[in-house]
Design a binder for these strands. Structure first.
Length: 369
RNA sequence: GGAGGCGUCGCCUAGUCCGGUCUAUGGCGCCCGCCUGCUAAGCGGGUUUGGGGCUACAACCCCAUCGAGGGUUCAAAUCCCUCCGCCUCCGCCA
C-alpha cells in the first residue's frame, strides 16, 4: 500500500496519480477522513487506557473499603477501555482498506492513460523482415517437436504445454544464459521457494489489486508465487542490513504461477503469458534516502530479456529494511527492450505488481537466443 | 503427521513455578561526555521498535511492544488456549 504519510502530506499528488490511471480521486478523500477518524479513536482509547493503568497502580497499596471502591471503579473502566479499543480497531481497519484500494503512485514520467498511450523512448535494432511467410511459435514448435500443446491441454488444460526435446533444451539454455549474464554482473544465484506465506505475497502487493491473478493453496494459508520477486522481496524482511553491504544483488530462479485472469484467449496463441512458467529474475536492494525507486533487472527465461524496477524499501532513513516492501512507483525499461521498442511505463492495475515488460510485450514471440 | 525442548528491547542474559514498586535485570557492543602525551583503561550518561498527542518533523508526554493471535483478571513477560519459528528424535517421502 502507499505510504500513509504521503497521503496525509501530499493528497493532491495522490489524486493526480489516480487521475493519471483514469481512476477516481474519491478514495483519497475516503482514506483521508478514515485517517482522521482513526487518530481520534486512538486518542480516545489511549486516554482511557492510561487512566486504567494509573488506577491499577493504586490497587495493591489500598486496603479494605478503599480497595473495594477502587476495584469497582476500575471494573467499569476496564469495560470502557475494551469498547474504546474495539472502536480503534474498527477505525484502523476502515483506514487500512481505504489505503489498500489506492494503487501505487504512478511515476512522474509515466504517461497518463491506458495500454495504447505508451511513449516510445528508444528503438533498438530494426524489426526483421522476411521474404517469406514467417511461421509463428506454435507452428515452429510443432515442426521441431519443441512444444506439445495438445498433450499440455490433455493433461493440464488449455494454456499448458509440454516442452520437449529442443524446446526443453532451449528453456534450460535460456535460463543458463540469463543466470550466467546475471552472475557476470555480480548477482548471487538463488533458487527461491515458489510457495510463500501471505505476508510475503502481501508484502509485494500481490494481494491487493492483483489478488485475482494469484493462486492460493486450498486448505493451507499459502500462495504460489507469480515470480521469484515475491520470495526475494521477503528474503531480507525483518532484517537490518549494514549499508556497507549494499546493494545486495540476487538472480533468483523459480517456477511462476499466474492466473492471468481476464486475459484468456487474448493474443496468446498458447504459450505466451501462460499460467505456469519459469523465470530467472534479478533484484537488488539498496539504500533509499529519497523515495524514488531503485532499479533491478529481470531476465525472463522464456524468450526475452527485460528490465523492471522495484522499490526494495519504504524506509525513509538510509537504513534499508526490506520488510513488507512494495514498489511505490511504476517501472521504466532501460535495456534489452522487446523488439518492438515500446516501453510501457505505466502498468495497468492488473499487472501493477509485476514488471511491465511481462504484461506489455506478449506479442513478441520469437526467441532471441 | 507424532514426541520433547526452546523463543525476553543489536548479541548474550535475569525474571515466568507463586500475576501488582517490572517504569523488564545485568553483561557485551555501540553513541555522547569527562579524564588522559596518543591509544587503552577508568568514570558519568545514553542506547527496542511502532503509533499517537503537542510541536519547531525538537524537547516532552502518552499508548502498544517480552515469537504471533485470542482468553482469564481491576491488573499478564508471568496463568489458560490456538498458531508460528528454531533445535533434537520418530514417522512419511510417488
Amino acid at each position: 500500500m502507499i505510504d500513509p504519510r504521503v497521503l496525509r502530506d501530499e493528497p493532491d499528488r495522490v489524486r493526480a496519480a489516480q487521475a493519471k490511471r483514469g481512476l477516481s480521486g474519491d478514495v483519497v478523500d475516503r482514506a483521508l477522513s478514515a485517517d482522521a477518524a482513526r487518530r481520534t479513536a486512538i486518542v480516545a482509547f489511549e486516554a482511557k487506557r492510561a487512566e486504567q493503568k494509573q488506577l491499577g497502580k493504586l490497587i495493591p497499596k489500598a486496603q479494605g473499603e478503599e480497595k473495594q471502591a477502587l476495584l469497582a471503579q476500575t471494573k467499569t473502566l476496564a469495560a470502557e477501555v475494551k469498547q474504546a479499543e474495539a472502536a480503534q480497531v474498527a477505525a484502523e481497519e476502515e483506514w487500512q482498506s481505504a489505503l489498500m484500494s489506492i494503487p501505487n503512485i504512478a511515476a512522474d514520467e509515466a504517461p497518463a492513460g491506458g495500454e495504447d498511450d505508451y511513449t516510445v523512448i528508444e528503438t533498438v535494432g530494426t524489426p526483421a523482415e522476411f521474404d517469406f511467410e514467417p511461421r509463428d511459435h506454435i507452428e515452429l514448435g510443432k515442426i521441431l517437436g519443441a512444444i506439445d500443446i495438445e498433450r499440455g491441454a490433455k493433461v493440464s488444460g488449455s494454456r499448458f504445454y509440454f516442452l520437449t526435446g529442443v524446446g526443453a533444451e532451449l528453456e534450460f539454455a535460456l535460463i543458463n544464459l540469463a543466470n550466467e549474464t546475471a552472475r557476470e554482473h555480480g548477482f548471487t544465484q538463488v533458487i527461491a521457494p515458489s510457495m510463500v506465506k501471505p505476508r510475503a505475497m502481501d508484502g509485494t502487493g500481490f494481494l491487493g489489486q492483483a489478488a485475482d491473478d494469484v493462486y492460493r493453496i486450498e486448505g493451507q494459508d499459502m500462495y504460489l508465487v507469480g515470480t521469484s520477486e515475491v520470495p526475494m522481496a521477503a528474503y531480507h524482511s525483518d532484517e537490518i542490513l549494514d549499508s556497507a553491504s549494499l546493494p545486495l544483488r540476487y538472480a533468483a530462479f523459480s517456477p511462476c504461477f499466474r492466473k492471468e485472469a481476464g486475459s484468456h484467449g487474448k493474443d496468446t496463441k498458447g504459450i505466451i503469458g501462460c499460467t505456469g512458467s519459469t523465470r530467472s529474475r534479478c533484484s537488488s536492494t539498496r539504500p533509499s534516502r529519497s523515495r524514488t525507486p531503485s532499479t533491478s533487472g529481470c531476465w525472463r527465461s522464456r524468450s526475452r530479456s527485460s528490465t523492471s524496477s522495484s522499490s526494495p524499501t519504504r524506509s525513509s532513513t538510509p537504513r534499508p529494511v526490506t520488510s513488507g516492501c512494495r514498489r511505490s512507483a511504476s517501472s521504466t525499461a532501460r535495456r534489452g527492450s522487446p523488439p518492438r521498442g515500446s516501453t510501457a511505463s505505466s502498468p495497468p492495475p492488473r499487472t501493477a505488481p509485476s514488471s511491465s515488460p511481462d504484461a506489455s510485450t506478449s506479442g513478441a514471440g520469437s526467441p532471441r537466443a
